[in-house]
Amino acid sequence: MTKQLGFYLDAEACNGCAVCLVACKDKYDNPVGVNFRKVIHHTMGSWEQDAASPGFMVPQISAYSLSIACNHCVTPVCLEACPVAAISKRDDGRVLIDPEVCVGCRLCQCCPYDAPQFNEALGVMTMCDGCVDLEGTGEEQACVAACPQRALEFGDIEELRAKHGDAVLGGVEPLADPAITQPSLLVTPHRHSTVLTGRTNAVE
């Protein structure tokens, strides 16, 4: 591999507005139930009696959103699970599903991030491809260009890591342990995130 492309998400800036999801869905004309990008809303906490003022309930809650698509993992489980070798990893690190080879068995739904999405009308699995069709056009990925909080970036993971020193590799709750698939996803964690330590993604 010459490089590893991936996403950067500033989870401090993300407010779950989902325009990234709609922009992507619109670009690919995806039907109901097929979403290459997903917005996860994570809530923690509850209400309690206020210690200082009996009779008053006060909240102890926190919440945040994460926007993720395909993490173009270094060791993707989807690729290994595919029985017909429809999934491959490109030289630039992108993980792609070939719709002409896919038989729609859905075994790639083992992905801990729900990246592969079954398109029932076409009978095949479909997935974020990092807007590979826009390569060389100067146009940014649909989600990146759409975000009104400028919370998303896409590019060489090493360059993104150098640019965002406070970012961690994909290991923020409720996302899966990054040690499993080594996602190429850098996240500046929201102040309430629990961060899982994972192995670093070395580019091989």
Binding site: N119, G123, V124
Partner: peptide
């Protein structure tokens, strides 16, 4: 058949603009 449907060679998913 249940699999392997005939599709346009460059299915719309791979087309951007």
């Amino acid at each position: 058949v249940g699999f392997g449907l005939k599709k346009e060679p460059r299915a719309r998913q791979l087309l951007g603009s």
